[in-house]
Nucleic acid binder design. Structure first.
Length: 951
RNA sequence: GGGGCCAUAGCCCAAUUGGCAGAGGCACACGGUUUAGGUCCGUGCCAGUGUCGGUUCGAGUCCGACUGGCCCUACCA
């Protein structure tokens, strides 16, 4: 690459360029030199209070922990969009480091994952080999950008020293239960002893001693926060693995590969995240996160308050429904059960009632046949069908249930718009206040009873707004909130139901039938009972296998049995251990953990990467991550000070991470209640792509623009806007920009494109502007011909000092607020001022200029700083401080508006009071002329801003 | 269907948070430097803020409706 570049520069005639111009060649050599300096001097090492990474003295109390979202080291390498956030956090970290704070900033790799495994399946190359090569390439690319990472803290989830602790956390979760009375997780051993001591009743009130070992195990296991479940899962034969709900698209196919997904029962590890649902919602209020992300999490957790209501049916069967509107019970006209509801068989009538509506029977001679046919049809329907045909369908079960509030008999249906896995799998039909129920009722000819008075001008069907209740017995006249309270109390009093809270959030399916993930620290005895391995046996390392693929099947074969890759490592699976009962043979768990596991806790390991005694030393944890109520307020949760990444992780990663953090907090391993105190979503760098008349993408860099039209190879092409990607032929890499302009130019350009949180289009042609700025700045301080200094020891004049200090004040604030685009603009402004001035730059101006440049363009700043005669790095400051003296002006120019339009302006002494300003404004020649003899009805004076005269 | 975000010059973006619409960059034009091109230096050009209405002495900024674009979510009772 270097060689190629030399050829290029000689081609354009390097001899014409002054020898000491800040060209890409010079920039690259400066950058390489300073990167080596930083590495050899450990410039970005952040010291811990204790342990291997501690320094000599005490650490500063003022610390900052900045973190980027864990990158996956893709084989494709980086394009210019990827480092946007990385550079942003680096600028932030560098700025704060220069102000004297102890700054922790590093980056590791979320390195387990499917691409390397798929590559292994295709080529037989071990995923570790692929992954490590990708990491090396990734590091080469990001190092070139001059990111000030503490390289001692690099971690990768695939390292056994790392996943040992991932497994350790799994065991802690496995060995815990959620004490709902205490509102926190506790060690499972405490549950066991409470049972043993009789402090806690067993489900059937038998004494603990009377339970068999199996019964005890079952009781305990059923309460663990990590548990095995036979629950239905998303089995994807085409991939040979089980998927989490999140990995299944809305139309019931795998997000990756687009294969059909089937629901079936399998024995899987689950994480009881639902135990934390309330805290996960409530604690959002304590976080400094974008409202958008909080909203997405609230939505995902989906907490709704309502009631369970029991309807009696013939044969003593009781159907329980969940509703958020128990106040509409008087308007209930029926029940609808999910087709899969277990009570359906029990309530189906033997025969249709004599007067049954023919539209209710599905044309079947008996209810049982109608139900069977409908269930079959519902099971055949894909999720896509359900989505596309929102027309309500269902069949009558032939049975009537009793509405508990007024004793009315209401028909019971099964309908596939009712979901088995939400609430109780059964709903009451209240068509007056719910659109879905109204739709169903109109298909089946059910009556509509409005229970809230309709507004006078209302002409719709369903009214879900507030108002006084009607047709509702003792609820009449009450508004919704009061009616809910009244009916809930009534239900509870009469034993017909109770108020409850329902969540959309489900437990987290934690098993994957994959090779390239963390093995579970679990073995099974001869009876198939799961046993946790002791911590001393961690890590459980991945065995070598010959074939990395899970056995896949015909994508449509719903009955196929999963066979994960690890199940073929027969020697590894069988293990002789002494788990307290003497040496026995056990079988290992052949599943691996999902990709989220390693990224759930990595911020902790950044803090204490080499600790082999514990997950994280509590002293280090408290220093870097602990709550700081004195700074962040009483409610402070602790956590990383700034976490930057894309909004695509708004729900899953951030929710799982929060969950693990809370478990570890409850168990006393960490002091922070939340992993990330402040979250910031950076925007994306997008790019234009061009399509020719055949519909093929053409190389974007060769497209020319003429008069708003686009041409490739002389032919017009169409432009579209979107992601950067190989297939769109519009990828620009940081490597090529660094080579053509230098890393500092790239950094400066990328930060000046716009605010951090806004997506913007990449425009290579604009990069030149950033380079010109740096060249001008360089030229102001360095003689391009001789390489000598142009810095003088003169005292700057007053005007220059004002320009400098105004810039300092503005740039400082912009950096602190992550407004790097305007910080850059202010530096350009100051530099343009100095350029215009022409003479050599006084040292007292050059130094703050260089220091202010440092967070954005660290290599160039270091180089100039050393040429200014300083030894060592400027990474730890000082960052210049503005002198108030130069910020205040002697005089203020006021624009004078007449009726809101600027008509003139007047200059008054800065300390002039309102009256003086007013007099000056009214006396101003043009204004006086304009006013004539009219008397202003009002004169508005905004101190320091403007004057507005109203006539 | 529900929820959210955005819209300022040919392009990317600023605007002290209700107070003079322009800080900065790209592009463009002209001049200087140069044998020339490019670089470099200088000067200049360009919008009344998507549309309509409201509040206000004053609106890019606040409120309402609409248009266009992007994102999330989707029978969650």
């Amino acid at each position: 690459m270097t060689k190629e570049f030399r050829v290029m520069s000689s081609e354009i005639g390097a001899e014409a360029v002054p020898a000491h111009r800040y060209t890409a060649t010079l920039a690259n050599s400066i950058e390489q030199r300073w990167q080596e300096y930083w590495t050899s001097h450990g410039t970005f090492h952040a010291f811990n209070p204790v342990g291997e990474l501690s320094g000599e003295g005490p650490v500063p109390a003022d610390k900052l922990f900045v973190q980027d979202m864990f990158p996956y080291p893709s084989g494709a390498g980086l394009h210019v969009g990827h480092p946007l956030g990385f550079i942003g956090t680096d600028v932030f970290a560098r700025f704060h480091r220069m102000t004297g704070r102890n700054v922790l900033h590093t980056m590791g790799f979320d390195a387990f994952g499917l691409p390397a495994e798929q590559y292994a399946v295709q080529t037989g190359q071990h995923p570790r080999q692929t992954t490590e090569a990708n990491i090396a390439n990734y590091l080469r690319q990001i190092r070139r950008l001059g990111l000030g990472h503490d390289e001692r803290r690099r971690i990768a989830t695939i390292d056994p020293d790392y996943y040992r602790w991932t497994q350790w956390i799994f065991l802690r979760i496995y060995n815990s239960w959620y004490d709902t009375d205490a509102g926190r997780a506790r060690p499972i051993s405490e549950l066991e002893s409470e049972y043993a001591l009789g402090q806690r009743p067993t489900p059937d009130d038998r004494a603990w001693d009377e339970l068999t070992t199996a019964e005890r195990n079952e009781l305990i296991d059923s309460q663990r926060l990590a548990y095995l479940s036979e629950a239905p899962v998303n089995w994807c034969p085409g991939l040979g693995t089980v998927l989490s709900n999140e990995e299944v698209t809305a139309d019931g196919r795998s997000e990756r590969g687009n294969f059909p997904v089937f629901r079936r029962n399998l024995r899987q590890w689950m994480m009881r995240i639902t135990a934390y649902a309330d805290r996960l919602v409530d604690d959002l209020d304590r976080l400094d996160w974008p409202e958008k992300v909080k909203a997405m999490q609230r939505n995902w957790i989906g907490r709704s308050h309502g009631a369970r209501v029991r309807f009696g049916a013939p044969g003593g069967v009781v159907v329980e429904v969940f509703t958020t509107r128990p106040d509409t019970l008087f308007g209930n006209v029926g029940l609808a059960l999910a087709p899969e509801h277990p009570l359906v068989d029990a309530i189906v009538a033997d025969a249709w009632p004599a007067d049954v509506d023919s539209g209710w029977t599905g044309g079947a001679p008996t209810p049982a046949q109608a139900v069977a046919a409908y269930r079959h049809a519902a099971a055949m329907k894909s999720e896509l069908d359900r989505q596309e045909f929102k027309d309500k369908t269902g069949v009558f079960t032939g049975t009537y249930a009793t509405n508990p509030v007024d004793g009315r008999k209401v028909p019971v249906f099964i309908a596939d718009y009712v979901l088995m896995n939400y609430g109780t799998g059964a709903i009451g039909i209240s068509p007056g206040e719910d659109q879905r129920d109204w739709d169903f009722a109109s298909v089946f000819g059910l009556p509509v009873i409005h229970t809230v008075r309709l507004p006078a001008d209302f002409d719709g069907e369903v009214y879900d707004g507030d108002g006084p209740h009607i047709n509702s017995g003792f609820l009449d006249g009450l508004d919704i909130a009061d009616a809910k309270k009244a009916i809930t109390a009534w239900l509870e009093e009469h034993g017909h139901g109770e108020g409850t809270v329902q969540f959309k959030l489900r437990d987290w399916l934690f098993s994957r039938q994959r090779y390239w993930g963390e093995p579970f620290p679990i073995v099974y005895d001869a009876d198939g009972t799961a046993m946790a391995l002791p911590e001393s046996m961690l890590p459980v390392e991945l065995p070598e296998v010959h074939d990395y693929s899970p056995r896949t099947f015909d994508p449509e074969d719903a009955d196929s049995e999963p066979s994960p890759p690890l199940s073929r490592a027969t020697e590894w699976i069988e293990v002789e251990l002494d788990l307290g009962d003497g040496l026995k043979t056990y079988r290992r768990d052949v599943n691996t953990m999902p990709n989220w596991a390693g990224s759930c806790w990595y911020q902790m390991r950044y803090v204490d990467p080499d600790n082999d005694k514990c997950l994280i030393d509590p002293v280090n944890e408290e220093y870097w991550l602990g709550p700081r109520p004195e700074i962040h307020g009483q409610d402070d949760t602790g956590g990383v000070d700034l976490y930057v990444g894309g909004v695509e992780h708004a729900v899953l990663h951030l929710l799982y991470s929060r969950f693990w953090q809370k478990v570890l907090f409850d168990l006393g391993h960490v002091s922070a209640e939340e992993p990330y105190r402040r979250l910031f979503n950076q925007g994306y760098v997008q790019a234009y792509a061009y399509i020719d008349e055949r519909g093929f993408y053409v190389p974007a860099e060769q497209v020319e623009e003429r008069d708003g039209r686009f041409f490739f190879d002389g032919k017009e092409v169409n432009r579209e806007y979107g992601k950067m990607g190989k297939s769109l032929r519009n990828v620009v890499t940081p490597d090529e920009i660094c080579q053509r302009y230098g890393a500092d130019t790239f950094r400066f350009y990328e930060m000046s494109m716009g605010p951090m949180d806004v997506s913007r289009p990449w425009a290579t042609k604009d990069v030149i502007g950033a380079q010109r700025f740096l060249q001008r700045l360089w030229r102001n301080l360095v003689d391009e011909e001789t390489g000598g200094s142009r810095v003088t020891e003169d005292e700057p004049d007053d005007e220059t000092l004002r320009a400098v200090h105004k810039a300092i004040a503005g740039v400082r604030e912009d950096y602190a607020e992550m407004r790097y685009n305007t910080a850059g603009a202010k530096l350009i402004e100051l530099n343009n001022y100095l350029t215009k001035k022409g003479e050599g730059v006084p040292r007292s101006v050059a130094e703050p200029l260089v220091l202010m440049l440092a967070p954005l363009c660290p290599h160039l700043a270091e180089e100039l700083w050393s040429r200014l005669g300083h030894s060592g790095s400027l990474a730890h400051g000082p960052f210049p401080e503005a002198d108030e003296r130069y910020l205040v002006e002697d005089t203020t120019e006021y624009p004078i508006q007449v009726n809101g339009k600027v008509r003139s302006r007047v200059v008054v002494p800065a300390e002039a009071g309102r009256d003086e300003v007013r007099l000056a404004a009214l006396a101003e020649e043009r204004i006086a002329e304009l006013l004539g003899d009219r008397e202003p009805s009002k004169v508005i004076i905004v101190p320091g801003r403007m004057v507005n005269i109203v006539v």
